[in-house]
Structures are given as structure tokens and as C-alpha cells.
Nucleic acid binder design. Structure first.
Lengths: 353, 353
DNA sequence: ATGGCTGTTGTAATCGATTACATTCCGGCT
DNA sequence: AGCCGGAATGTAATCGATTACAACAGCCAT
């Protein structure tokens, strides 16, 4: 009847039936030999394996997924694909997913054209068996989707209030480490370049910075808290604000390495020297941090490990195909990975005022 | 019979039959209303659309792909997922692919565990309708796969000899621009930090650099050509080699920005100043280049555009489901995108010897 | 020897969407 | 009136793998 593909079969692409014929067994036996070898006799198993090798059989995943009512893939929602901070995390996820035979689909949540619709699709949809979300500021329709949403794990960022599983780092503690480092060097006037205000990471790091200052009895002048948005460009803008101040903080904690680099870059253009004139601490420990001039003192996040952990958690959730809460009781729970202060050349004792 | 999923249907996930029932038409009409609206009457079409909205129907892609003998996705083979140079390209690909309703699968060809097997799978396999390869050094079994391989487009790197379609930049010309810039500033001793020797980009850029030097009648001292591998770390090693020279080139063209940054970073540690003591030119124009200290003079590659172009080319290839050569005659052909010299602070006239 | 048991294999239903072919309907033409 | 052609729709086969159930063989115990 329907043969628009006269060549397709002829050209190759053997199916399970071809293998069965070649091995002299039924398709059921082939299927079992490949996915549950214990169920078939050694003789049949060998025959099937041989037939597979001879025919060059590759399983058709669409058929398998249809039958199993699954999709064979996980979706990763990332705010900015081109941001190197995320690519290391992606790499971690990819490794685990590929070991588990799962495809990793990457979707940029901040893509211009019709992003909203597309994201909603991924959420509500049957297009993924699991979801890893790296973006804590998804559109509102996030949870409106429907009850049969795939398991979700948040990584790095998360949505407050939702009791989703997540893999994060101790952002508050990282900020405390950063500020205490500056204090330990003798700084008394400390500033902070913040991320976007609605971002959960911004809030946690800000809280940590505030706490550390308060604990040391330091005055947290509101003019020393610069609004920015994690990008290089916003770090540059913060540097301009810093330059315009009457009384300048001698130590600056930036909520991202990108901002710290932008900040230092702009200061350099204006002849201000780091760390001689001002000390700078970043957050993330991106690749370039170690090799920036000066090398950036920063808070290291285990980015690759974050991705791996999130993927492992998601797999556990997917395997125990129970409801979220049940799986949780079963063992999976949110993980907070440690951060680490990496001292490099961008910090020193404050200049003698 | 087989009902391991008693809840699945009940829980929701309407199928095309449910929609048909709700709309009072047959499944054939639903299918046509959704994918070939011109074939059904306005009345039926509206009824179907209404039923879709009511039931919250989402098409099952596995079923569609099975029937259409396709996979609904394209695979991107990238050498190092965590390398920011590639993530911008990925972002370009992702945008085009998502517009076309295709999933983008990302696979890291340099992943530790069993990478070879996995890659071969992607190639020979029915796991993708198309393939974009960003790695010019794939394992040898690349073309041995079989005749029913999906369409392939190379981007950035490519395999010499294979007459595959590709999207590249004019690497040779970029190198000429870089070296001529140094020559124009008055440099007479020019060095080159190279990429890995088996890499096609290394070879093209090296050729361009050599040609430009020869054209200006400059001596290309072999000791001024440093072996490296595009990474930050290898740029640092190159800097050490440079420091160890008796007679040092006053201008250095690095085959990647990452190496240029590593190079400058290491020189800085040894008190050598850029551009006062030595001028440095990079290649790529990665994000940090503009904000490095000093800002890096470099050759800009349109990374996002490279990704978009490759994706568009692949789509054209996939649509015209003809053989590679036929599609080529039909219009698609390899594209070479232009590069651009971006002059910044890392280059200046040579010091008075 | 008969019944029960385990281990292995085959038959055929099933997942959900697409589409070839058949059917129906209706207006226009001879 | 009868026939033709085109538009709209329905019926059912199909894609390829999985697996419930049935069938059967071999073995032990009663």
C-alpha cells in the first residue's frame, strides 16, 4: 500500500525482523536477547548477536520509545547557551546522560523568537523524560503546565517556594568567604557588585556579603552596592560608578567572574591598579580567571560536578518512576555542593589611606 | 492485554483518537488538519483546533517519527563542549534548529568514556536526520560507517579530501591580516603561536602567516614558530619559550585568542609588557578579548553566524532529500564567511631595539 | 504415568500518527 | 436523467520494537 520509501528497505536499515530471520528465531527472542539477555538461552543469544553483527542492525529508537511511552532524552534549559559558565555544566550533564544512553537536548530559554511557547512545550510536553533547569527565572506559566510533567531537577539557580529537587552551591557561604578574605587583608570599606535583583543567586550572595560585613562591625554603605547583571558589560558599568564615588571602597566583591573581569578591565583603562589601589574578588572561577591580569581571586564553583550531580539526580528520579515526593523519600534529595576560596593576585592589603 | 500503564491514559496525555472523538471527525482528518490544513474544510479545521485546545493534545513525536522514518533531530559533534568558542556556534545552530522544530543533540567528541563508539553510532545510526561536525579530527572510522548516513555539514573545521559541505571562515586571509597589521606597525621580527599540527585551521593560518611574511621579505625564523594547541595553557608554554629566546620576535600572531591570553598572562608574570615590549594578535575574538588587559587585537570570526549558516545549509540538505551531490547542484554549497581585523590595545609599534 | 514446575520460545496486540485507497457528496455538463 | 470530476472524509495498513500470554519441552515428585 503505502510505499513512498521503495528504496529505504532495500538500501539497508535492517529491522528486528531481518535480524530474527537471519538468526532463525522470532522477533521476541531478538528483542529479549538484546535488552534482557538472561531470559534467553546462550545458544539463541549468540545467534542473535551474530545476526546483529552480520546485518548491521541498529535499533530504531522511535519505535522503541513509542512502545515504551518514553522519549529517550532529557532537556536542559539554559539561560544563555553562549555563556561559558553554563557550558562546563552542560559538559558534566552530557557525560552522565550519554553513559545512560540518553540524548541531551539543549534549549536556550532566552532565545529571541517565540521562546516562551517553546519552553512551555518542553515542560508540559512529552518531548523529554526529564528536565534539568539552569534558569531560575522562567516564565510564569512554568508550573501551570499540567500534572504529567516529567521529573525536574534544578541546577545552580532555582525557583524559590517550589519544592523541586536541586543541585546548588552554598552561595551564601561563598560570599562570606569572599568578604572575610578582604576583611582579613585589612579592608574596612567593602563594596559589592550584584547580579540581577530578581535572581536567587544575587540574593543569597548579597545576604552572605551583608552578614560578613555586619559580623565584622563594618558599615555597609548603600552606595557601595552596585546594580549589575552578571555580564562583563555590567561589570564595566559598575567600575564607572566606583570611579565616580567620593569615598571609594578599597575591596570589591563581584557576584560573578565576568563582572570582576569587566570591572578590572575598565579600572585599568582609567589607570587604577588592581590590587594596589583596589582589591577585587570574583565568583565562579571561570577558565580565564586564573589567567586574567591580574589573576583573579575568586570563589570556585565545581561547575562540571554540578552538571554531573544534577544528571545523576535526575536519572534516579526517572528510574524510580514514582511521584516526586515518593522518589524523594526514596533517597534523592537536594544537594548543596561546597565552594572554595581561591586566592590569586587580584587581592592585597588596602593602600594606606 | 499489555497494560503496564493503567494510569497513563487516565492521567491525561490525549492522543489523536481522543481529539478525533472530541471533534467528531476521524483521526485522518485530525492529522490532516494539523499538518496539511489546506486539505480539510474550514469547518472541520476549526472543530479540530477547538478539540486540540480542549483536550490539551500534544503530538507524540515518537509515533510521528516512526511513521515518517525520521528522528526529528540533528546531532552536533563538538570537540570540547566546555570551550566557549564553540558555545557561541552552538547557540547559532540552536536558534535555527528550534525554528525548524528540530531537536538539537549535542555530543562531545572528546568525552572520555567510549567516545569512539558513541560517535560512530551517531554517524551510521538512525539517531539523527542530520549532522553538524565541528571537529575536523574525527576517528578514522568516520566514513566507513555505511551508505545510509544522514546529511553532514562541517563547520569551522573540516576534513580535507572529503568533499563534504562546510561553513568556514577565510583562515588564511585572517592570518594575512594579522601579520600585515604587525608589519604595518613596523615589526620586522614576527613570531607565530600555532595550533595542533594535524588541525586544518593551524595549517591554513600558518600558511597565511608565512605568505604575508614572505611577501614583505621578512625572515621566518623556525624558532619563532611555537607549537601549541589552541588552549590557554599552551599559550603560557609558548610564552616561556619566547622568554627563553636570545633574539625575540617583537610581534606575535597567536592562532587563537585563548593562547594569546595565556601568552600575555605569562609575559605579565615575568614583567614583560604588552604592547610596549611585544605586540600580540589573536584569532577568534572571543568575548573576553575586548576586555582583557590589554584589550586584544584579534581576527574576528562571526561565530554565531557560522552556526546559523551551518544549520541553514543542513536544513536545505535535509529538505531536498536527494543525494549529497544532487543537493549540491540544487544550490547548497560550501560557504566561506569573511573575517575581520579588530585593532585594540595589544599591538603597537615595536620598541626601539 | 500424571500433574506441576521451570525455562525458552513464538504469536500477536500494542504504542500513536500518517496516508494510500475507498467512499461519499455535490455541482456542472451533455 | 445520467455521468464526470473534484473536494472532503473515513477505513485501515503501516512504521519497528516490546511484551502479555500461550505453547511447549524437559524434569522432578507423587
Amino acid at each position: 500500500m503505502d510505499d513512498r520509501f521503495p528504496e529505504a528497505r532495500a538500501a539497508g536499515n535492517p529491522n528486528i525482523g531481518d535480524v530474527a530471520r537471519a538468526a532463525g528465531v522470532s522477533t521476541a527472542t531478538v528483542s529479549r536477547a538484546l535488552s534482557q539477555p538472561d531470559l534467553v538461552s546462550a545458544k539463541a543469544r549468540d545467534a542473535v548477536l551474530k545476526a546483529v553483527a552480520e546485518t548491521g542492525y541498529k535499533m530504531n529508537l522511535a519505535a522503541r520509545n513509542l512502545r515504551l511511552r518514553q522519549t529517550g532524552g532529557i532537556v536542559v534549559l539554559v539561560p544563555h547557551l553562549s555563556n561559558p559558565f553554563f557550558s562546563a555544566i552542560l559538559s558534566g550533564i552530557a557525560g552522565i546522560a550519554s553513559q545512560a544512553g540518553l540524548n541531551m537536548l539543549v534549549a536556550d530559554t532566552r532565545e529571541a523568537a517565540g521562546a516562551d511557547r517553546r519552553i512551555a512545550g518542553y515542560l508540559h510536553n512529552n518531548s523529554a523524560d526529564g528536565l534539568i533547569v539552569l534558569d531560575g527565572n522562567l516564565p510564569d506559566n512554568f508550573d501551570g503546565g499540567g500534572r504529567n510533567r516529567p521529573p525536574v531537577v534544578f541546577a545552580c539557580e532555582w525557583v524559590e517556594g517550589h519544592d523541586q529537587l536541586s543541585v546548588t552551591v552554598d552561595n551564601r557561604h561563598g560570599a562570606v568567604l569572599a568578604v572575610n578574605h578582604l576583611i582579613g587583608l585589612g579592608h574596612r570599606r567593602i563594596g559589592h557588585v550584584m547580579g540581577p535583583p530578581d535572581n536567587i543567586l544575587t540574593q543569597r550572595r548579597l545576604a552572605g556579603a551583608r552578614d560578613a560585613m555586619a559580623a565584622a562591625g563594618l558599615n555597609a554603605d548603600p552606595r557601595w552596592f552596585f546594580n549589575a547583571n552578571f555580564t562583563l558589560a555590567s561589570g564595566i558599568a559598575a567600575a564607572r560608578s566606583w570611579l565616580a564615588l567620593d569615598e571609594r571602597p578599597s575591596g570589591i566583591f563581584c557576584s560573578s567572574d565576568a563582572m570582576a573581569c569587566g570591572f578590572m578591565s575598565e579600572l585599568n583603562r582609567h589607570g587604577v591598579r588592581v590590587p594596589d589601589d583596589v582589591s577585587v574578588v570574583g565568583f565562579d572561577d571561570i577558565d580565564i580567571a586564573e589567567h586574567f591580569i591580574p589573576a583573579l581571586t575568586t570563589i570556585r564553583q565545581p561547575r562540571h560536578r554540578i552538571g554531573e550531580t544534577a544528571a545523576e539526580m535526575l536519572l534516579a528520579l526517572m528510574r524510580g518512576d514514582a511521584t516526586k515526593s515518593a522518589a524523594r523519600d526514596g533517597g534523592e534529595k537536594s544537594t548543596v555542593l561546597p565552594v572554595e576560596l581561591i586566592v590569586r593576585g587580584s587581592t592585597a592589603a588596602p593602600p594606606i589611606a
